[in-house]
Simulated scan of single mutants.
Amino acid sequence: MTATQRRLLVRRRVPWGDIAFKLVLRLCLAVAVAFLVTLLVYVVYKGWSRLDPRLWENFPSIRRPERAGAKSALFGSLWVIGMTAVFCLPVGILGAIYLEEYADHRRWYNRLIELNIANLAAIPSIVYGILGLGVIARGFGFGTTVITASITLSLLVLPIVIIASREAIRAVPGEIRNASYGLGATKWQTIWRQVLPSAIPGMATGSILALSRAAGEAAPLLLLGGLTYVAYIPDGLLSGYTVLPIQIYGWISQSRESFHDLSSAAIVLLLIVIIAMNSVAIYVRNRSQKRW
Protein backbone atom coordinates (compact mmCIF):
# COMPACT_ATOMS: atom_id res chain seq x y z
CA MET A 1 0.00 0.00 0.00
CA THR A 2 1.43 3.32 -1.03
CA ALA A 3 1.61 6.41 1.16
CA THR A 4 -1.15 8.09 -0.89
CA GLN A 5 -3.48 5.13 -0.36
CA ARG A 6 -2.80 5.13 3.39
CA ARG A 7 -3.65 8.86 3.59
CA LEU A 8 -6.91 8.28 1.71
CA LEU A 9 -7.79 5.42 4.06
CA VAL A 10 -7.18 7.59 7.11
CA ARG A 11 -9.36 10.32 5.65
CA ARG A 12 -12.20 7.89 4.98
CA ARG A 13 -12.27 6.60 8.57
CA VAL A 14 -15.37 7.84 10.33
CA PRO A 15 -14.67 9.20 13.84
CA TRP A 16 -17.47 7.22 15.50
CA GLY A 17 -16.27 8.19 18.98
CA ASP A 18 -16.58 11.91 18.24
CA ILE A 19 -19.99 11.44 16.65
CA ALA A 20 -21.27 9.42 19.60
CA PHE A 21 -19.95 11.98 22.09
CA LYS A 22 -21.65 14.85 20.23
CA LEU A 23 -24.92 12.90 20.14
CA VAL A 24 -24.76 12.28 23.89
CA LEU A 25 -24.09 15.98 24.53
CA ARG A 26 -27.00 17.02 22.34
CA LEU A 27 -29.26 14.47 24.02
CA CYS A 28 -28.35 15.80 27.46
CA LEU A 29 -28.98 19.35 26.29
CA ALA A 30 -32.34 18.38 24.80
CA VAL A 31 -33.41 16.65 28.03
CA ALA A 32 -32.42 19.67 30.14
CA VAL A 33 -34.22 22.11 27.83
CA ALA A 34 -37.30 19.87 27.74
CA PHE A 35 -37.51 19.78 31.54
CA LEU A 36 -37.01 23.55 31.74
CA VAL A 37 -39.68 24.30 29.13
CA THR A 38 -42.11 21.87 30.79
CA LEU A 39 -41.58 23.51 34.16
CA LEU A 40 -42.03 27.02 32.76
CA VAL A 41 -45.17 26.06 30.86
CA TYR A 42 -46.64 24.41 33.96
CA VAL A 43 -45.89 27.39 36.19
CA VAL A 44 -47.31 29.91 33.70
CA TYR A 45 -50.41 27.78 33.09
CA LYS A 46 -51.09 27.30 36.79
CA GLY A 47 -50.57 30.94 37.72
CA TRP A 48 -52.11 32.52 34.62
CA SER A 49 -55.36 33.39 36.42
CA ARG A 50 -53.43 35.52 38.96
CA LEU A 51 -51.04 37.25 36.59
CA ASP A 52 -52.80 40.60 36.87
CA PRO A 53 -52.21 43.91 38.68
CA ARG A 54 -53.53 42.42 41.92
CA LEU A 55 -50.31 40.43 42.19
CA TRP A 56 -48.03 43.47 42.52
CA GLU A 57 -50.52 46.04 43.85
CA ASN A 58 -52.06 44.15 46.81
CA PHE A 59 -50.54 43.00 50.07
CA PRO A 60 -50.70 39.36 51.21
CA SER A 61 -53.90 38.07 52.78
CA ILE A 62 -54.52 34.83 54.63
CA ARG A 63 -58.30 34.91 54.59
CA ARG A 64 -58.91 36.13 51.04
CA PRO A 65 -56.40 34.59 48.62
CA GLU A 66 -58.36 35.86 45.61
CA ARG A 67 -57.35 39.41 46.58
CA ALA A 68 -53.89 38.64 47.94
CA GLY A 69 -50.77 39.97 46.26
CA ALA A 70 -47.01 40.08 46.64
CA LYS A 71 -46.45 43.83 46.87
CA SER A 72 -44.50 43.69 50.13
CA ALA A 73 -42.40 40.74 48.90
CA LEU A 74 -41.64 42.48 45.59
CA PHE A 75 -40.47 45.70 47.22
CA GLY A 76 -38.66 43.71 49.91
CA SER A 77 -36.75 41.83 47.22
CA LEU A 78 -35.81 45.10 45.53
CA TRP A 79 -34.59 46.50 48.87
CA VAL A 80 -32.56 43.42 49.77
CA ILE A 81 -31.01 42.91 46.32
CA GLY A 82 -30.28 46.62 45.95
CA MET A 83 -28.42 46.74 49.26
CA THR A 84 -26.68 43.46 48.45
CA ALA A 85 -25.32 45.12 45.31
CA VAL A 86 -24.18 48.14 47.34
CA PHE A 87 -22.34 45.94 49.83
CA CYS A 88 -20.79 43.23 47.64
CA LEU A 89 -20.01 44.80 44.24
CA PRO A 90 -17.47 47.44 45.37
CA VAL A 91 -15.74 44.97 47.71
CA GLY A 92 -15.72 42.21 45.09
CA ILE A 93 -14.40 44.39 42.26
CA LEU A 94 -11.72 46.06 44.41
CA GLY A 95 -10.68 42.65 45.73
CA ALA A 96 -10.36 41.34 42.18
CA ILE A 97 -8.24 44.35 41.19
CA TYR A 98 -5.93 43.76 44.15
CA LEU A 99 -5.51 40.05 43.47
CA GLU A 100 -4.88 40.49 39.75
CA GLU A 101 -2.90 43.71 39.60
CA TYR A 102 -1.19 44.27 42.94
CA ALA A 103 -0.94 41.00 44.88
CA ASP A 104 2.37 39.16 45.05
CA HIS A 105 1.32 35.54 44.62
CA ARG A 106 4.54 34.37 46.25
CA ARG A 107 3.28 35.70 49.58
CA TRP A 108 1.56 33.11 51.75
CA TYR A 109 -1.33 35.40 52.75
CA ASN A 110 -2.25 36.11 49.11
CA ARG A 111 -2.30 32.38 48.37
CA LEU A 112 -4.43 31.88 51.48
CA ILE A 113 -6.91 34.52 50.28
CA GLU A 114 -7.22 32.86 46.87
CA LEU A 115 -7.72 29.45 48.47
CA ASN A 116 -10.45 30.78 50.76
CA ILE A 117 -12.25 32.51 47.88
CA ALA A 118 -12.30 29.29 45.89
CA ASN A 119 -13.58 27.32 48.89
CA LEU A 120 -16.23 29.88 49.88
CA ALA A 121 -17.76 29.72 46.41
CA ALA A 122 -18.69 26.06 47.03
CA ILE A 123 -20.16 26.39 50.53
CA PRO A 124 -23.94 25.72 50.76
CA SER A 125 -26.08 28.79 51.24
CA ILE A 126 -27.55 27.50 54.51
CA VAL A 127 -24.10 27.87 56.11
CA TYR A 128 -24.16 31.57 55.30
CA GLY A 129 -27.58 31.71 56.93
CA ILE A 130 -26.09 30.25 60.12
CA LEU A 131 -23.26 32.79 59.96
CA GLY A 132 -25.68 35.67 59.44
CA LEU A 133 -27.91 34.51 62.29
CA GLY A 134 -25.08 34.04 64.78
CA VAL A 135 -22.89 37.04 63.91
CA ILE A 136 -24.95 39.69 62.14
CA ALA A 137 -28.44 39.22 63.58
CA ARG A 138 -27.47 38.31 67.14
CA GLY A 139 -23.82 39.34 67.49
CA PHE A 140 -24.25 42.84 66.06
CA GLY A 141 -27.88 43.07 67.18
CA PHE A 142 -29.40 43.92 63.78
CA GLY A 143 -32.13 41.31 64.16
CA THR A 144 -34.42 40.29 61.31
CA THR A 145 -33.96 43.37 59.18
CA VAL A 146 -33.07 44.34 55.63
CA ILE A 147 -29.44 45.03 56.49
CA THR A 148 -29.01 41.55 58.00
CA ALA A 149 -30.38 39.87 54.88
CA SER A 150 -28.30 42.11 52.59
CA ILE A 151 -25.01 41.47 54.39
CA THR A 152 -25.69 37.72 54.52
CA LEU A 153 -26.47 37.54 50.80
CA SER A 154 -23.44 39.75 50.08
CA LEU A 155 -21.21 37.20 51.79
CA LEU A 156 -22.93 34.46 49.80
CA VAL A 157 -22.29 35.96 46.36
CA LEU A 158 -19.03 37.82 47.08
CA PRO A 159 -16.79 34.93 45.92
CA ILE A 160 -18.72 34.76 42.64
CA VAL A 161 -18.24 38.49 42.04
CA ILE A 162 -14.52 38.27 42.81
CA ILE A 163 -13.95 35.25 40.56
CA ALA A 164 -15.93 36.73 37.65
CA SER A 165 -14.20 40.11 37.98
CA ARG A 166 -10.76 38.48 38.09
CA GLU A 167 -11.49 36.52 34.93
CA ALA A 168 -12.66 39.71 33.20
CA ILE A 169 -9.51 41.59 34.23
CA ARG A 170 -7.31 38.66 33.22
CA ALA A 171 -8.90 38.62 29.77
CA VAL A 172 -7.72 42.16 29.00
CA PRO A 173 -4.76 41.86 26.58
CA GLY A 174 -1.36 42.69 28.02
CA GLU A 175 -0.63 44.92 25.03
CA ILE A 176 -3.13 47.46 26.37
CA ARG A 177 -1.25 47.70 29.65
CA ASN A 178 2.14 47.91 27.94
CA ALA A 179 0.95 50.65 25.58
CA SER A 180 -0.39 52.65 28.52
CA TYR A 181 2.87 52.27 30.43
CA GLY A 182 4.78 53.24 27.30
CA LEU A 183 2.88 56.52 27.14
CA GLY A 184 3.89 57.35 30.72
CA ALA A 185 0.75 56.36 32.60
CA THR A 186 1.01 55.12 36.17
CA LYS A 187 -0.25 51.72 37.26
CA TRP A 188 -3.48 53.11 38.72
CA GLN A 189 -4.11 55.28 35.65
CA THR A 190 -3.66 52.20 33.46
CA ILE A 191 -6.10 50.20 35.59
CA TRP A 192 -8.69 52.97 35.84
CA ARG A 193 -8.63 54.20 32.24
CA GLN A 194 -7.69 51.11 30.25
CA VAL A 195 -8.14 47.83 32.12
CA LEU A 196 -11.43 48.46 33.91
CA PRO A 197 -13.31 49.86 30.87
CA SER A 198 -12.22 46.83 28.86
CA ALA A 199 -13.26 44.46 31.66
CA ILE A 200 -16.70 46.02 32.27
CA PRO A 201 -18.63 43.54 30.06
CA GLY A 202 -17.33 40.51 31.94
CA MET A 203 -17.70 42.20 35.32
CA ALA A 204 -21.27 43.23 34.60
CA THR A 205 -22.24 39.74 33.49
CA GLY A 206 -20.71 38.07 36.53
CA SER A 207 -22.15 40.62 38.94
CA ILE A 208 -25.70 40.34 37.61
CA LEU A 209 -25.52 36.55 37.64
CA ALA A 210 -24.39 36.71 41.28
CA LEU A 211 -27.24 39.07 42.20
CA SER A 212 -29.67 36.84 40.32
CA ARG A 213 -28.61 33.95 42.52
CA ALA A 214 -29.10 36.11 45.60
CA ALA A 215 -32.58 37.07 44.40
CA GLY A 216 -33.63 33.43 44.27
CA GLU A 217 -32.20 32.38 47.63
CA ALA A 218 -34.66 31.41 50.36
CA ALA A 219 -32.76 29.02 52.67
CA PRO A 220 -30.46 31.57 54.41
CA LEU A 221 -33.28 34.09 54.78
CA LEU A 222 -35.61 31.48 56.29
CA LEU A 223 -32.89 30.64 58.79
CA LEU A 224 -32.53 34.34 59.57
CA GLY A 225 -36.22 34.44 60.47
CA GLY A 226 -37.61 35.97 57.31
CA LEU A 227 -41.34 36.53 57.64
CA THR A 228 -43.85 34.82 55.37
CA TYR A 229 -46.55 37.43 56.05
CA VAL A 230 -45.67 41.11 55.82
CA ALA A 231 -48.35 43.70 55.06
CA TYR A 232 -46.07 46.72 54.66
CA ILE A 233 -43.23 47.96 52.47
CA PRO A 234 -39.75 48.24 54.05
CA ASP A 235 -38.85 51.85 54.79
CA GLY A 236 -35.21 51.48 55.75
CA LEU A 237 -32.29 49.20 56.49
CA LEU A 238 -33.58 48.39 59.97
CA SER A 239 -37.10 47.57 58.79
CA GLY A 240 -38.66 44.13 58.69
CA TYR A 241 -39.05 42.52 55.30
CA THR A 242 -40.06 39.59 53.21
CA VAL A 243 -38.86 38.57 49.76
CA LEU A 244 -40.45 36.73 46.86
CA PRO A 245 -38.84 33.32 47.55
CA ILE A 246 -40.05 33.38 51.16
CA GLN A 247 -43.52 34.55 50.10
CA ILE A 248 -43.68 31.74 47.53
CA TYR A 249 -42.65 29.23 50.22
CA GLY A 250 -45.37 30.52 52.53
CA TRP A 251 -48.10 30.24 49.90
CA ILE A 252 -47.04 26.76 48.76
CA SER A 253 -47.23 25.52 52.36
CA GLN A 254 -50.93 26.46 52.49
CA SER A 255 -53.49 23.73 51.87
CA ARG A 256 -55.89 25.72 49.67
CA GLU A 257 -55.43 25.39 45.91
CA SER A 258 -55.90 29.12 45.35
CA PHE A 259 -52.67 29.79 47.24
CA HIS A 260 -50.85 27.33 44.98
CA ASP A 261 -52.04 29.28 41.93
CA LEU A 262 -50.89 32.47 43.63
CA SER A 263 -47.45 30.97 44.32
CA SER A 264 -47.12 30.01 40.64
CA ALA A 265 -47.91 33.58 39.64
CA ALA A 266 -45.32 34.84 42.13
CA ILE A 267 -42.74 32.48 40.60
CA VAL A 268 -43.42 34.05 37.20
CA LEU A 269 -43.02 37.50 38.77
CA LEU A 270 -39.68 36.47 40.27
CA LEU A 271 -38.54 35.16 36.88
CA ILE A 272 -39.48 38.47 35.29
CA VAL A 273 -37.39 40.35 37.89
CA ILE A 274 -34.38 38.08 37.27
CA ILE A 275 -34.75 38.35 33.48
CA ALA A 276 -34.88 42.13 33.81
CA MET A 277 -31.64 42.06 35.83
CA ASN A 278 -29.95 39.89 33.22
CA SER A 279 -31.21 42.21 30.47
CA VAL A 280 -29.43 45.09 32.20
CA ALA A 281 -26.20 43.07 32.18
CA ILE A 282 -26.60 42.30 28.48
CA TYR A 283 -27.25 45.98 27.71
CA VAL A 284 -24.19 47.13 29.67
CA ARG A 285 -22.01 44.46 28.06
CA ASN A 286 -23.11 45.27 24.52
CA ARG A 287 -22.74 49.01 25.04
CA SER A 288 -19.26 48.58 26.49
CA GLN A 289 -18.20 46.31 23.64
CA LYS A 290 -19.35 48.83 21.05
CA ARG A 291 -17.47 51.60 22.82
CA TRP A 292 -14.27 49.65 23.06
Rank of each mutant, 00 (worst) to 15 (best):
T148I: 03
V230G: 07
L133T: 03
T186E: 01
V195M: 09
L131R: 00
L211N: 09
W192L: 06
T152L: 08
P220N: 08
L131I: 07
G184M: 12
I126V: 14
L221I: 15
Q189R: 09
A118V: 09
S212K: 14
I126C: 04
L120E: 08
A121K: 07
L120S: 13
S165R: 01
T186Y: 03
L222I: 14
N178R: 14
A179N: 04
K187M: 07
L158W: 10
A118N: 15
I160V: 15
I123A: 06
P201E: 07
W192E: 04
G129P: 00
L156M: 10
R177K: 11
G184Q: 14
I147E: 00
S212D: 11
S180M: 14
T190Q: 03
I160Y: 15
G206V: 06
Q194P: 00
T190E: 03
L183N: 15
A179D: 00
N178H: 07
I151T: 10
A179Y: 04
A137I: 09
Y181R: 09
T228P: 08
S165Y: 02
L153C: 10
L221G: 07
V161F: 08
L133I: 08
G226L: 08
L153S: 07
A137G: 05
I162L: 05
I200G: 11
E217F: 02
I169G: 11
V157A: 03
V146K: 09
L221C: 09
A122R: 13
R138V: 11
I160R: 15
G206H: 04
T205G: 15
T205C: 13
R170K: 15
L223M: 13
Y128L: 05
I163V: 13
P201H: 06
G143C: 00
G134I: 04
I123T: 09
E175N: 12
N119E: 03
P220Q: 12
T228R: 15
P159T: 13
P201M: 05
A214W: 09
G225W: 08
P159V: 13
A199V: 04
V230W: 11
R170I: 04
I191P: 01
V195D: 05
A231L: 05
A204P: 01
Y229P: 02
M203G: 11
L221A: 11
L183P: 12
L222M: 14
L156R: 01
A185Y: 07
A164S: 15
I117E: 03
A168C: 08
P197M: 12
I163K: 11
Q194D: 10
I160L: 15
I123F: 06
L196C: 08
G174Q: 01
S212M: 15
N178I: 08
A168S: 13
V146I: 13
A218L: 03
G129R: 00
S198R: 10
S125W: 02
A121I: 03
R166W: 03
I176S: 02
I123C: 05
I151V: 15
L183I: 14
E175F: 11
G139F: 02
V230K: 12
S125D: 05
A214G: 13
A171R: 12
V157Y: 03
I191C: 02
V161G: 07
A218V: 11
S212I: 15
N119K: 12
S207Y: 06
S125Y: 01
I191H: 01
Y181L: 13
E217D: 05
A149S: 01
L155G: 13
Y229W: 14
